[in-house]
């Protein structure tokens, strides 16, 4: 299995290469450059031109690309034009924030969705099931930003239960327990919002998986053994129905990371998503390209993770 995983990781290299080329070319197509914004009527055009020359922006695109990819391979994505610090440093800290936020979101998501989906499927067509189905319709219909704004307004501004901005209270020093709790506390509201929005598909999927499983042949075989209904569910139905959910875990995490783009912006949470939006607005190429590369890499890792999980939980599957 390790061999196969290593091979899969190696295959990612050409994939990332193609991705990088696409991103670079697309980024170059965007109108303007980092210096466009600095232009005022009294800027000296020659000065701007000098800066461009210095930044290598006047080189042919392939020269720029080779320079960029060469450095990128060593983890150096250049300097942010806006923040004037290394892109890797800038992203590193924010990526960590986003990573934790996504992880907490995923945990909350599954804590809500798995029990609800399982119960709705098992007690199909009861009042209980109908309430859950109604809940998932509501969360399906509501757009991300609307729910986020409502939550922010009620729980943040009205009730003051949660902070409305930032990722940690500045009064704590990193490494202390207070710092940890403050981080978690700041994450909670955006994480709950993201999680709730993500529950719809998991609940619906699980519910229908379980309803279908009830009439499967091997479930009938299990029932013909005369084992208690609860055992039929726990040993034969649930495990098999959770399989596809486990399979989607990798993709779900990728989805949460990408989904953070809106959530972080609304909750003023300093993560990759927020950084992505602000870099887009300021045409901070080096940051944009690095972020898109990172999102791409995460998508590839997500699918690898899904395959690995599947091969662990399903004996029929061996990753190839």
């Amino acid at each position: 299995m390790w061999k196969i995983i290593v091979r899969r990781v190696l295959i990612m290299i050409p994939q990332l290469f193609v991705l990088s080329l696409l991103i670079f070319i697309l980024a170059k197509q965007l109108p303007g450059d980092p210096f466009t914004g600095l232009l005022t009527p009294d800027t000296d055009p020659n000065r701007i031109e000098e800066l461009r020359e210095l930044a290598g922006l006047n080189d042919p695109w392939y020269v720029q690309y080779v320079n960029w990819i060469g450095n990128a391979a060593q983890g150096d994505f250049g300097k942010s034009y806006t923040y004037k610090i290394k892109v890797s440093t800038l992203i590193g800290e924010k990526a960590l924030n986003t990573f934790w936020l996504s992880l907490v979101s995923a945990i909350i998501l599954y804590l809500i969705a798995i029990p609800l989906g399982v119960l709705a499927g098992r007690y199909q067509d009861t009042i209980f099931d109908k309430i859950i189905v109604f809940y998932s319709f509501v969360t399906y219909a509501i757009p991300t930003f609307v729910l986020a704004l409502i939550f922010l307004f009620i729980f943040g501004y009205q009730l003051h239960w949660f902070p409305t901005v930032g990722s940690v209270d500045v009064k704590y020093d990193p490494g202390t327990a207070g710092y940890f709790w403050s981080k978690l506390y700041h994450m909670l509201l955006p994480a709950i919002t993201t999680a709730i929005l993500g529950t719809t598909s998991v609940i619906q999927y699980l519910r229908s998986e379980i309803i279908d499983a009830k009439s499967l042949d091997y479930v009938r075989t299990a029932r013909s053994k005369g084992i208690p209904v609860n055992k039929v569910y726990s040993r034969h139905i649930f495990r098999n129905s959770l399989l596809p959910i486990a399979a989607f875990l990798g993709f779900t995490i990728t989805g949460l990371l990408v989904g953070s783009i809106f959530i972080e912006t609304i909750f003023g949470y300093p993560g990759m998503g927020q950084l992505f939006i602000s870099s887009l607005l300021s045409r901070d190429y080096s940051v944009i390209t690095a972020l898109v590369m990172l999102f791409g890499l995460l998508a590839l890792l997500g699918s690898l993770l899904s395959d690995i999980i599947m091969s662990i939980v399903d004996p029929r599957i061996r990753i190839e």
Binding site: Y218, T221, R235, H236, P315
Partner: peptide, 8 residues
């Protein structure tokens, strides 16, 4: 073919 639990 379908009467046995594939995961057990």
């Amino acid at each position: 073919l379908s009467a046995l639990n594939p995961l057990m």
